[in-house]
């Protein structure tokens, strides 16, 4: 099964404003807006901040503060493949640190692969675990992880 590489649109301020306006009437709309933007563009472009601030009547600093607080929101576009490897205790008990280091090293030169640490994917009985392009995998080792990323 070849992982589906996420496809993101290039950032577009008008589309950004539209997304923000669509969600602005929800209670506490900022996180839903940021998620929608990241789903569409893969990251939160700096140019999105004043647009969101304008739509929600917040200061740009407030929006910046929220974006940077949360680990999920990226400030740069990710590679074609995103690998989120669990580094928490249950996965550590079966070598997650080594897995993370090796996959990160093997992918360091490869701009198409973004490796991120996460702290628990809730797959603790089938460690080590990782989300590869949104699909959860368990009982991973370095070779298997790299194979999955490469679509093998």
């Amino acid at each position: 099964m070849k992982p589906q590489a996420p496809r993101f649109d290039a950032f577009d301020a008008d589309a950004c404003r539209e997304i923000a306006q669509d969600l602005a009437n929800h209670e506490g709309p900022l996180l839903p807006i940021l998620h929608a933007l990241q789903d569409r563009f893969g990251y939160i472009d700096q140019a999105a901040l004043p647009v969101i601030a304008d739509v929600l009547n917040l200061s740009r600093a407030e929006v910046h503060g929220v974006v940077t607080f949360y680990h999920d929101f990226r400030s740069r576009p990710p590679g074609r493949h995103v690998v989120k490897i669990c580094r928490a205790e249950a996965c550590q008990a079966l070598g997650a640190q080594k897995l993370f280091d090796e996959v990160a090293a093997a992918s360091a030169e490869n701009g198409a692969v973004t490796v991120e640490a996460v702290y628990c994917l809730g797959n603790c009985a089938l460690s080590p675990a990782a989300l590869i392009d949104g699909d959860l995998h368990g009982r991973l080792d370095t070779t298997r992880t790299l194979d999955l990323v490469a679509g093998r």
């Binding site: 209670e27 506490g28 900022l30 996180l31 998620h35 929600l56 929220v66 949360y70 999920d72 996460v118």
Partner: peptide, 26 residues
């Protein structure tokens, strides 16, 4: 359903409420 954004601290109830309201999860 509302999605968090990868902050462990938002499991703390008052941080969670801050986050739901659209702020930093402090």
């Amino acid at each position: 359903v509302r999605l968090g954004a990868g902050a462990y601290i938002c499991g703390e109830e008052t941080s969670l409420l801050e986050s739901l309201e659209g702020r930093r999860g402090q």
